Each structure stands twice: as C-alpha cells, then as structure tokens.
Simulated assay, not measured.
Amino acid sequence: MALVDQLNEQMKTAMKARDKETLSTVRMLKAAVQNKQIELGHDLTEDDEKALLSTELKQRKESLVEFQNANREDLVKPLENEIKIVESYLPAQLDEAAVTALVEETIQEVGATGKSDFGKVMKTLMPKVKGQADGGLVNRIVKEKLG
C-alpha cells in the first residue's frame, strides 16, 4: 500500500478516535508527501518515501534534543509521540550490532584499509541501510572501524 493511502487510513482512524495528536502528525506527514510529489512531478517511489520519512524523523529527533537541552518538557512529550508515529511508517530500524556487521562486510567488499577509504565505504553502505539506520550511527561505526 502506498504511503499516501496508509496516511489517509491513519487520518480516518485518528478522526474517529478523536486523537488530535496523531491526526496532527499524520496531516503533517501527508502534506510533506504531497509537497515532495509536487516537487518531483510524479508519485513517490518506495525509496523516495523512505527518504522523506527518514528526513521527517531526523528533524523531529534533532528538535527533541534541542527541547531537552532547553528544559522544555512541555514540548518533549508531544514530540516523542510524533517520533513514534513517524517510526511506525518506516521499516524496522537496525540495531547497532546489525549496522556493525554491515559495516564490516562493506569494508571487506570494497577492500578499505584506512580513513582515506571512508567515502568509498559510505557510498557503498548507505544504499544498503537507507531508511533502516540513522546516518550518524553508520558514520560513527565506519569511522571506528577504519580509524
């Protein structure tokens, strides 16, 4: 099922349940999808959808850190709920052990030997983990393994 269809179903469910937080988040996601479709001029592919959702999730996680640092607990709880909703549309996230295994496999695959091969490893690895792992986590693990 296309992401727009999933969002429409979730919107209907949230409206019936009078769940304002979920409804608001789903509407924001739907607007982001529609804006991206207009920008690209066609329906989104599965990869486009994953990239869009990953971007939305990353923005919310960055905001969460900022709110926590500013002691804005009134904004933290709703944002945590938004993050859960966005995550529900993404494929299951890889844990650190799985990412480490993929990093080691990719280092072997490209024959990387040191820090100078960082770009080569990332270029090969990122398509494998797209939408399934945080780029910051992947970056950190690759640096550890090559450094």
Rank of each mutant, 00 (worst) to 15 (best):
M1F: 09
M1V: 09
M1Y: 12
A2G: 13
A2H: 15
A2Y: 13
V4L: 08
D5I: 12
D5S: 10
D5K: 09
Q6P: 00
L7M: 04
N8E: 05
E9G: 12
Q10D: 11
K12Y: 09
T13S: 06
T13W: 07
A14K: 14
M15F: 03
M15P: 01
K16S: 12
K16G: 07
A17R: 14
D19V: 08
D19K: 14
E21M: 14
E21Q: 12
T22H: 11
T22Q: 15
T22F: 08
S24T: 11
T25D: 13
T25N: 14
V26I: 15
K30F: 01
K30T: 06
K30G: 04
V33P: 02
Q34N: 06
Q34R: 11
K36H: 08
E39D: 03
D43K: 14
L44A: 08
L44S: 13
T45D: 07
E46F: 12
E49Q: 13
E49K: 10
A51G: 11
L52S: 05
L52C: 08
L52Q: 07
L53S: 09
L53D: 02
S54Y: 12
S54V: 13
T55Q: 09
K58W: 05
K58P: 04
R60T: 13
R60N: 11
S63R: 15
L64R: 07
V65E: 11
E66Y: 07
F67R: 00
F67I: 00
F67N: 00
A70L: 04
R72D: 01
E73D: 01
L75M: 10
V76R: 00
E82S: 14
K84V: 06
K84M: 08
I85T: 09
V86P: 00
V86C: 08
E87F: 01
E87N: 01
S88Q: 04
S88R: 04
L90F: 00
L90W: 00
P91G: 01
P91H: 03
Q93C: 00
Q93T: 04
E96I: 11
A97V: 02
A98P: 01
L102H: 06
V103K: 03
E104T: 02
E105Q: 12
E105P: 10
E105L: 07
I107M: 14
Q108T: 12
G111L: 14
A112V: 15
T113C: 14
G114M: 12
S116K: 15
F118P: 08
F118S: 12
F118R: 10
G119D: 13
G119P: 10
G119I: 09
V121C: 04
V121M: 07
M122T: 10
M122P: 09
M122Q: 11
L125Y: 02
P127I: 15
Q132G: 01
Q132N: 09
R140T: 06
R140Y: 06
I141V: 10
E144Y: 10
K145P: 05
K145S: 06
L146I: 12
